[in-house]
Design a protein around this nucleic acid. Structure first.
Lengths: 247, 247
DNA sequence: GGAATAGTGTCTTTTAGACATTATGTA
DNA sequence: TACATAATGTCTAAAAGACACTATTCC
């Protein structure tokens, strides 16, 4: 055993490999809104295992990068977006000996919210990359690889609850400046429930520093009515009291 | 490259070691209440690295167990308690190349709430195991190993918010049957703020199936007043609308 | 009996739900 | 002008904050 050696000496002679060593991947639930439907990016696996099935974009971490950096890299590789273009947070880590036939592969899952992009990019191991409506993905009509369906379910409920407390819903929108209708539309799509416009307005505008009037007007992307005021996200870091899902 | 081979053939010739392989540990924030103070179990590191510093109990996963099982095992090793004796959930995963001098060590952190136990058990690598008040731990007077102080901070805020929505506060209590004062006391200690007893009662009892009257009475552990009714946890899985921290 | 908490009741305030009404733009 | 949404306002309901008051039990 060690006896009165320094930490430097200890490190010099230490071999981490005496402990079980596992592969770590980062997989991302990249949510966006397409045609007024909450959608998620999946890639078709080009190689074994689970070849031909749809999987979350992701991959093995590099030995010199943090988990967060790996997630940011993956997001960029698949979408061309940086973390500032959207929202990215760690979801949960999935690890057990049986989830991947190649061995003990642990997946650190992330959730991202991004605005609409023209075309996702298929990575190394993937033949296609495509956004699908979340309803379709969860409807059992698609072949989902590994335990990714569980991850997607967890990711979806994270998003649904996260937008209650944190001002991140606007990350789905294509413009820095948006109308209240556009923002409300995001909530309605993510929650799958209609909101009463006047109540939504009252609530959102009652939170200090949540939205900033930009002094400009245009007609909402989603409406045919009159023009409306434009807002940008303010400095508020939380929505308190939170917005609540109806019912 | 592979060409029209089956998945079985692919797995047979596959070597996962071509990807960066990291060590995975599970570390647990084991919270309990001692002398009306929210406390956390720490172990003093008996070996390098970070020798002599206080660390979260934990250790490397075994290659044949899931992350959750590893956490349950660690909890049992340190406290003698099973997961049913308390509450255990995954917190977050911490991983970057620099957090442990031995190499790329990823820590999957968990949070546990447990009732009072007589004596924690020091594990292999630890010379002592001891509960400390959370205030002391965060007061910069203790030498905390690795990035465990960050983990503890995250764990604390998880606990504080989790008890708002989920009926887990009673896991701190020593008895299946408890009074409303005892339960309220838990909230007051975790949040560090006093609650108005009558309002707490009204709120808690208004949630369907949250608490069940057990038809028995005794005087509260924490009081010198009259006897009060005893309750047990009901089947409710969430507190809705949630309890809110004052101020 | 006095002290202390248990338990009930009430008034007020805050916040959200529901929806009517008016304003202002587009087609 | 017709229509659709923006924006404002109002009434109601739900829920929480504050606290008075009564009931029990221990010492």
């Amino acid at each position: 055993m060690e006896k009165d050696i320094t930490e430097d000496e200890f490190i010099a002679q230490y071999d981490l490999k005496k402990y079980p060593s596992v592969a770590v991947t980062v997989d991302i639930c990249i949510f966006t809104i397409i045609d007024n439907k909450l959608s998620l990016l999946l890639v078709k696996r080009g190689g074994h295992p689970e070849k031909g099935k749809w999987a979350l974009p992701g991959g093995f971490i590099n030995i010199n990068e943090s988990l967060d950096k790996a997630a940011q890299r993956e997001l960029f590789e698949e979408t061309g977006l940086t973390v500032d273009d959207g929202y990215l947070e760690q979801l949960k880590t999935y690890g057990n000996p049986d989830r991947d036939r190649r061995g003990y592969v642990t997946s650190v899952a992330y959730v991202a919210l991004i605005p609409h992009i023209d075309a996702p990019i298929a990575g190394d191991d993937a033949t296609q990359a495509e956004f699908f409506p979340i309803d379709k993905i969860l409807s059992n009509t698609m072949d989902i690889a590994f335990d990714h369906k569980t991850i997607i379910t967890d990711g979806l409920s994270r998003v649904r609850s996260k937008i209650e407390y944190f001002p991140i819903a606007h990350k789905f929108l294509d413009n820095e400046k948006f109308t209240l209708s556009e923002l409300r539309n995001v909530y309605e799509i993510v929650w799958g429930k209609p909101l009463i416009p006047s109540n939504f307005r009252r609530k959102i505008l009652s939170v200090p520093n949540l939205l900033i009037t930009v002094g400009d007007k245009r007609t909402s992307d989603i409406s045919g009515g009159r023009t409306s005021e434009l807002f940008t996200a303010g400095q508020a870091t939380e929505i308190f009291p939170p917005l609540r899902q109806p019912e």
